[in-house]
Each structure stands twice: as C-alpha cells, then as structure tokens.
Simulated assay, not measured.
Amino acid sequence: MDLKETDILGEKIGEHWYYQSKAKAVKNLLSNINTSTILDVGAGSGFFSKHLLAHSAAKEAWCVDISYAHDSDSSEAGKPVHFRRSIDSSNADLVLLMDVLEHVDDDVGLLTDYVSKVAKGTYFLISVPAFKFLWSEHDVFLEHKRRYRLSQIENVAQSSGLTVKHGAYYFGAVFPIAATVRLVGNLFHKESTQPRSQLKMHQPMVNATLAALSNAELPLMKKNRLAGLTAFCLAVS
C-alpha cells in the first residue's frame, strides 16, 4: 500500500469506501486459510495486516517497507506489529503484497526474493491495479510502472515459483463508473509537471453508495475473471 495515499486520507483511511471494501475482500479471499503470522511487504501504514489482526485469528504482523525512517514496534488489537525496513527471512504463513508489484521494474525478481525468505506452503495474497487502458495521472502520481490483467499477475506469480490457487477481479460493480471517469479524463488531460492523485474523501452519501456497490459483489467476487479495478492473486509457495 502506498504511503502517498495514507498521507492523503490520514486517520480516515478506514472510512474510505475503497480501503474499507478492499479490506473486506482480503478477508473474504482468506476465509478458508488459517493465519498466525503475517508478513506485509511494501506495507506502508500496515492498514491491511492491521485489519486482519483486528478481525481474524492472526496473532502477529511484520510490516516491511523501505520508506520507513527506522525500525519500530507497535500493536493492533493487543497483537504485536513490527515495522522493519528489511528482513532476511520470515516464519510467516501469509505474505501480503498489496499494490506493491506495480511499483518495481522487476516484479518477478521482487516476488521471487520473498518466496525464498519463507517456508514452503506459505500463502501469498497479491493485489495490483487492473487494465492498462485505465492508466491515468493517478498512476503517474503513485509512480506505477504498469497495470495488469488477471492472467498477467498470475503469470508473475508462477514465474516466481508460486502455485496459483485463485485469481479474481474486484471492484467490478464500480468498474463502469471508474472506467468512464478515467477515459474521459484522459481524453481531455494535459501533461502536467506535477501529477495529482484522484484519491479523495467523498461526500458521505457518495462514499456509502460506492461502499454498498462494492460490498454487494463480495459473495460473487471469487468468480469474477471479467473486469474490475483490482486484480487479486492467491498463491502458495
């Protein structure tokens, strides 16, 4: 997760429809997996691992991000959270890479490196922004290198030594709205030396409506290989 977005939303990040719904999607995808220790790679604020600590039986989280000024320790729901700039190995049974791989030049290389740091049988949950045609100023602001089709992120996982268990798109219900906004915006967009984020806190009614649309698709999301704003890949080492 990107610290730039954390800076924009601040303490209200958990109220934003996108992060609120995405956290529920993560819990949905992991519903049949017993997790004790989480390794959250490119964790930023650790929003998703903290959510799992608060709403599941997970007992501990290690958040790794090169952007941290120094190593530190905290807690969530009475459970330890360790923030580290790097790690050499991990006993985690779940590795999260939430919107991380699109930031690096060598996505297979980064993922392979973390596969080598954990034991065989460790689950990996990966999310990436979907569809190249949705590229916008928002991607430039977040310093993305690419967006993915579902088959592409599954291929990255396989090339890194993982066995793909499941892949799905999410935010399909809001996909037509977002795609229209992005495409129209790109049509009239002028190059800027200071790209801006499209992320913002919406009016309560808009926020609630977008959250409701996203939550409504949760029961069917595991079957969605057609379209969405995010591509999820669940794999095992």
Score class of each variant (00 low, 15 high):
M1P: 02
L3Y: 11
K4A: 13
G14R: 07
G14A: 08
Y19D: 02
S21G: 15
K22L: 14
K27F: 00
L30F: 12
L30R: 10
I33G: 03
N34K: 14
S36A: 09
I38G: 02
L52F: 08
A54F: 00
H55N: 15
S56E: 03
A57S: 13
A58H: 00
V64C: 01
F83L: 04
S86E: 15
A92R: 04
A92F: 05
D93E: 04
V95H: 04
L101T: 05
L101A: 06
V104Y: 13
D105Q: 09
D106S: 13
D107V: 11
G109I: 01
Y114D: 02
V118G: 01
V118P: 01
T122D: 05
T122I: 09
L125V: 04
L125A: 03
K132R: 07
L142Q: 08
E143D: 15
H144S: 09
K145F: 06
Y148V: 07
Q152P: 01
S159N: 13
S160Q: 05
S160A: 15
L162A: 12
H166G: 15
Y170F: 15
V174Y: 01
F175Y: 14
I177M: 07
A178L: 07
R182D: 01
L183D: 11
V184T: 03
F188Y: 11
K190T: 10
T193H: 10
M201L: 14
V206R: 08
T209F: 15
A212T: 09
S214I: 03
L220I: 13
L220C: 08
A227L: 14
G228M: 09
A231V: 08
C233Y: 05
S237E: 00
